[in-house]
Design a protein around this nucleic acid. Structure first.
Lengths: 113, 113
DNA sequence: TCCAGTACTTAGTCTGTCTAAATACAAAGA
DNA sequence: TCTTTGTATTTAGACAGACTAAGTACTGGA
């Protein structure tokens, strides 16, 4: 019954996770969802309702740029929106990583696990 | 401009932090607030409006037991409500620590900081 | 034909932290 | 004396972000 990581715990970290996942290269939302879930060793089940709105926020803040995959593409299937990091997104990712390590250090010191 | 740890990031971890702080011995809310802030190296500024309601939740869940400090005490000043861990609280703390380390491992793997 | 998988959207809910203000007591200083 | 500062608790209301849940749309396989 391996407990899952709850949504509450994730709060405020999802943005950095998405930016980090995008660092490996441009991707569409569903792919990001799968990439992160795969990296989560089955403990992390993100929902579309969290990921897509989070991506919209990132786009609104200019941290990612999005464009619809060219329809001339040879692939079949639903259209996909491709996200890529902007320069500001990279800067924010660096900042997010600092915040993450600070967070782990400080909370870890208190929780003492 | 040392950035502070935001409330969002803390979500879902405060309960474990409080239980952990109580492990050192019974304490009242204000003391817990100060203890945790002190352990936070100035990066963590909890608010009463977060801590007291969190303690009420813990009490409601039977994870801590609370009682008013005996009025016969020789000390002067406002009355204080003393919290102590229950057996269930200790069990939950252990569980919270496992969740914390899982969380750090999984999110850390994605953020890669 | 129906279903499963991919891919995106969005309305509405929930909950925990926050802001902010109030209460109360004591000690120190002007 | 009056004010301020520090200790200590309470609580109403705001807010943000992850959630539930339902929908759209396309493709391929059973």
């Amino acid at each position: 019954m391996t407990a899952e990581i709850s949504g509450d715990a994730l709060r405020g970290h999802l943005a950095t996770m998405l930016l980090s996942a995008l660092e490996a290269g441009p991707a569409h939302g569903f792919d990001l969802l799968k990439r992160i879930e795969a990296a989560g060793c089955g403990l992390l089940h993100l929902k579309e309702g969290s990921v897509y709105p989070a991506l919209y926020r990132l786009e609104r803040e200019g941290l990612v740029r999005a464009e619809w995959e060219s329809p001339e593409s040879e692939r079949r299937g639903p259209r996909r929106r491709i996200y890529r990091l902007t320069r500001r997104g990279r800067a924010r990712l660096a900042q997010g990583r600092e915040e993450w390590s600070r967070f782990v250090r400080v909370v870890g010191a208190i929780v003492g696990a």
